[in-house]
Design a protein around this nucleic acid. Structure first.
Lengths: 418, 418
DNA sequence: TAAGTTTGTGCGAAGTACAAACAAACTGAT
DNA sequence: ATCAGTTTGTTTGTACTTCGCACAAACTTA
């Protein structure tokens, strides 16, 4: 039998700019080998522990639909290694039987280093495998200052934190504001902190501390934090949305963090919701960020003649509305509606059905979330049996981001998710 | 050691509507078993053949980075089964060596049934595993007519096609316009064909033909068609965009078709790009569809006093612009710019970097695509080394959709992609 | 004709998941 | 107090898959 070299009906025309994308002959096929299989399953068992808390071997086996012996085989080496520990026996639910020995992360196991990097301020801490935050250290830096000065500050701050670990942590995770190239570990640009522009922070810290270092942008850390111990726990699909001085987001899709090429997915602030809208600092008009972040809120508050418009927040509006202020209520309604438009677009695009709010809008608590939800419900094209959940993470922004930063290490270094 | 039942810092508050999503205790963890591993790898080898055309065992092994014997082990049973065939020996590139025996899909292997269902018309055909279209049959139906009449027509049409297969096909794939619940195989609603509303077509045809049947919405079939033998071939990440009477899209993300919950992802037509824009038939204002589909184009053509505005198409505008018409050029520019806004939003959200155009806009050929690309480039927040490709599929819409419909069967039935 | 190269195939080793059987630990009825 | 019943976790052997090595087959080049 004779084959044409390529089927002849591949007639699609490509614009000139995609030579290498056409290559195809790269490593785009990867078979799963026997050894990676073990690694995958190990990761999934850990994931099950994160999602469900301490569980016995038998419970884990039921949860994962595998044989009990398989779980034993996976779990035993990790116990011997000191990563996991067996807890006290817990009498079984009813009707007797041998008591179960729940398994969870060893408090004595190595921890994770976490860094939260926002314009002007740094927070570093250690995070245990069970999500506890320790050795929190804070520092400030001049966002317009000298790069070496900044590097000294961040190294010193991290050193103070890491010194409190009783053994070397698994690695260091960084959550940073701005535009991040997470593949190459470079901060591409942070509008409010020019000193960070183009900084290859991962390389620098990796060399300095001799530890694995990963970086990702702030909303994605919030997402991981949500997934780990927040409202995203156990969910397979949801998004995290952050509003503040800027607006950003991140997605958890089918059980994994979505990054996009070079980690550039989720730059939602600059999706357009009003083609001929206000000029955005990105040069476009009518970006979502121009109508659903703090600058808009301040501007509108000022226009309405509200008191102290420069310090208005969603929290204040919720309080004002609850106290009967029509102005606050009206502005809150418009604000939440504007937030809803971006979520609506996301919903129509990806149909994630679940959204966790962070930042200023989360400051508005359940009230604000419920208003957003109602706006989304009203706007979205409903399907049968489709319910959309809008949630706020009540843990507190900083902690979620730090936990998330630590979680980034887990998912990259421990290959927790395939 | 004693564990708290759940870590106490899980304080996230959830809106009331997510009881079951919170459950977590379901089958959300799945370990990969030994036998599924084989299935996965078998699927990936097939995928490699689709992506790269006929290849020898040795080449496949190099492509996938695995041992040659592994490929033999995977491929041999499929050859014996008649799914694949060994081609004539091809002398190796240079420097001698034993000639390679390329392997590809057996033309005698079972084919795939494909149905394209658009308001008022049906196309059915058989598709070989190497993508050839056979036994194409067409029929029409009354979109506002009787349901039983419609069912008779589609069954008859499919029967005519299937009768020409020399053996039972693997299954039947349906690409349908409108809103589809691909999980349950139900057509939820087609604006222009009320007869289809709520029709459980998968169940009906599955019973009638005793074959596996899958359905998905039209843009997703285009996507699969693109991936199979169009511009998306070998790509790991891209989107298909369809513009016509309506506007829709679908995504291929990290090597798999993205569906979203109940297959409701990609309803891009009703993402909002102009909050206070024109009223859309969905009830919202300023949906992308209101500014980037044929109804807008006709309306604007009429407003400009263009001749025969009711038959204007992108193709005609491109022709007019090439012939020096300023009116055509101007309208084409606005049209492509409007299309670009939706792509821009997608790019900011998912960063797919590659988009394949279909439908009316694809009728404008490379010229239209290039205009769209330039608008997107101008609008998007550039990152270093990021190139955005906008492509049209030149094969012809119907064929791509039919191949895609067939491809749907492959990906679901043969588990071609995990 | 011989050396070199590449392809495809046996064969045994290693790693993983699974099924069956069993000891351990607990409950509850007799 | 004893025994049946239940659940947990382990032991043992089996099945499946990939990998490395060795080798025959087929071709080119000197």
């Amino acid at each position: 039998m004779k084959f044409g070299n390529q089927p002849s009906y591949s007639l699609g025309q490509r614009s000139a700019s995609t030579k290498e994308a056409l290559a195809g002959e790269g490593g785009n096929v990867t078979l799963v080998s026997q050894s990676t299989l073990g690694e995958i399953n190990r990761g999934r068992v850990l994931q099950a522990l994160y999602d469900n808390g301490p569980k016995s071997r038998a419970e884990l086996a039921r949860l994962a639909g595998v044989n009990r012996t398989t779980i034993t085989g996976i779990v035993q080496p990790m116990i011997e290694e000191g990563l996991l520990v067996e807890g006290d026996a817990v009498p079984s639910d009813f009707k007797g039987g041998k008591p179960a020995r729940p398994i969870y992360f060893n408090p004595e196991a190595p921890m994770l280093g976490a860094v939260l990097l926002l314009p002007g301020r740094i927070q570093t801490c250690l995070v245990t495998l069970s999500g506890e935050i320790k050795a929190l250290t804070k520092a400030e830096f001049d966002p317009h200052g000298d790069r070496d000065m900044f590097l000294t500050i961040i190294k010193d701050t991290l050193s103070v934190t890491l010194a409190q670990a009783h053994q070397a942590p698994f690695g260091i995770g960084i959550a940073s504001g701005g535009m991040i190239d997470s593949d190459n570990g470079v901060i591409l640009a942070v509008n409010l902190a020019p000193v960070l522009t183009g900084l290859p922070l991962v390389d620098i810290l990796q060399k300095h501390f001799s530890l694995p270092v990963v970086i990702d942008h702030h909303p994605r850390a919030l997402l991981v934090g949500d997934r780990w111990f927040g409202p995203g726990r156990g969910q397979q699909t949801f998004a995290a949305i952050y509003t503040g001085e800027v607006l950003g987001g991140a997605f958890y899709i089918d059980g994994r963090v979505y990054r996009g090429l070079a980690g550039s997915g989720g730059e939602l602030g600059h999706t357009v919701v009003q083609i001929d809208g206000e000029l955005c600092n990105c040069g476009k008009h009518g970006c979502w960020e121009t109508v659903a972040a703090l600058p808009w809120l301040r501007r509108e508050a000022a226009r309405q003649g509200m008191e102290n418009p420069e310090t208005v927040t969603c929290a204040r509006l919720v309080k004002g509305a609850a106290e009967g202020s029509e102005a606050a209520d009206g502005l809150l309604d418009r604000y939440t509606r504007n937030v809803a438009f971006g979520i609506l677009n996301l919903q129509q695009t990806l149909s994630l059905n679940s959204y966790v709010l962070h930042g200023d809008i989360a400051g508005g608590g359940v009230d604000a979330a419920e208003r957003v939800r109602q706006h989304v419900e009203r706007l979205v094209r409903k399907r049968p049996n489709q319910e959309i959940s809008i949630t706020v993470n009540g843990i507190g922004e900083g902690h979620t981001a730090l936990r998330g930063a630590a979680g980034l290490v887990l998912s990259s270094h421990l290959k927790l998710v395939i």
